[in-house]
Design a protein around this nucleic acid. Structure first.
Lengths: 206, 206
DNA sequence: CATATTTTGTACCGCTTCGCATTAAATTCT
DNA sequence: AGAATTTAATGCGAAGCGGTACAAAATATG
């Protein structure tokens, strides 16, 4: 169902690859400061092609956010493998995030959503919606793992999975902001491991 | 030393009030999307006056950030009154933050620094510097209070004041992001109080 | 009162912005 | 082969951008 030959001139570019290039531009500059010329240069598509394929600048931006969200959720699901200890799960989540956040040409880019969507969230309702949904999906996935940990006895019986998940996410948010603010990898790794300790403090070592 | 009469035509506006108006514009729109026309309209200063008083747009933005940082540190110092329990201190810090974060015409504005400076931090070194300094000053003030709590025995002897402070800040960062993403006051208050519990968990009730 | 100095307001500059109209090119369908 | 359809490339255009030149206004100084 992918190779139904459409009539008309075929595309000379890979939409997914173009989206990835556009994402890098937004990641560095943010939505407002990223110009269509920047995006056109990075994707090697001229503006009308960009427009035809993705819609206007906001549509394109929302597309990149959605893709990023999806990638993040995939990585999260993998990191939360329930056959591992909760501690290890969280450590993997943070390590994976830092690998992404600390990448950057000029300075560390942090999280695309927290670093660039947050600023637009006030005036662009669609961005606010994607951001809100991304955060709560993230919370939800961790909460699910936390609930499992309570059921299996890995966390104390009285532990509140939802709140522990929110706090585990809070550490992520902090890593995202601090990475973009220029904190060193060492600092961020310490915060991550302290966060794991605090949140899993009541979890028994197996 | 404030009323040294300068020669020449006197200013017809209050610079501090103008700065506060400009801050509101940046707070809603972010640095990149705030135009000089927006700022001029909000402050009721025409562009040359703005320029004369504060320099270019980036200078003006950095001025608003610096003022915000200062206000925040003042509020923090007040909330961390060491004659109160550490629990109460943190609760006051979060309550004060939420009062600021949840204010907004269209949607909650969150934190000016985290909500608008983060996105510019990659490409504007001066913004990154202010943001980094603001975050670490905040950490530092809380850490100081944490250290006191360890010395006074309010926190367990083995507790790491620096790391507890970083995590207390992490909850703030999360509140800042989530407020701007549209989370409800109730949700944010729950997170704040869970954060207090988790961080002060080992603190004895007096 | 004249001069120097600073602020104010108007108007404008060159540049960039986003989006689109238009034409050329490449492919499928008939 | 020719019509239909889709994409690609050029380039434009109206609006907005940040910043400033310039002259008028308001004050202090001599």
């Amino acid at each position: 169902m992918k190779d139904e030959k459409k009539r008309g001139r075929p595309r000379a570019f890979d939409a997914k690859a173009a989206l990835a290039k556009a994402r890098d531009v937004f990641w560095d500059r943010g939505f407002a400061a990223a110009s269509l010329d920047n995006l056109s240069a990075a994707t090697k598509l001229n503006r009308p092609s960009l427009y035809g394929a993705f819609g206007d600048k906001e549509d394109l931006y929302l597309d990149t956010l959605e893709g990023y969200r999806q990638d993040g959720m995939d990585a999260l699901a993998e990191a939360l493998d329930p056959s591992l200890q909760l501690r290890d799960n969280l450590a993997r989540v943070y390590a994976g995030a830092l690998a992404v956040y600390l990448h950057g040409e000029i300075a560390a880019r942090g999280c695309l959503l927290i670093g660039t969507a947050t600023v637009e969230a006030v005036e662009h309702e669609r961005v606010r919606e994607v951001l809100g949904r991304s955060l709560s999906d993230f919370d939800g996935a961790i909460e699910k793992r936390m609930r499992l940990a309570v059921e299996s006895g890995e966390l104390a019986e009285g532990a509140d999975p939802q709140m522990l998940a929110m706090l585990a996410s809070a550490v992520m948010h902090s890593l995202a902001v601090r990475a973009r603010a220029g904190d060193s990898r060492e600092t961020l790794e310490e915060i991550a491991s302290s966060g794991v300790e605090l949140i899993c403090g009541s979890a028994r070592q197996s």
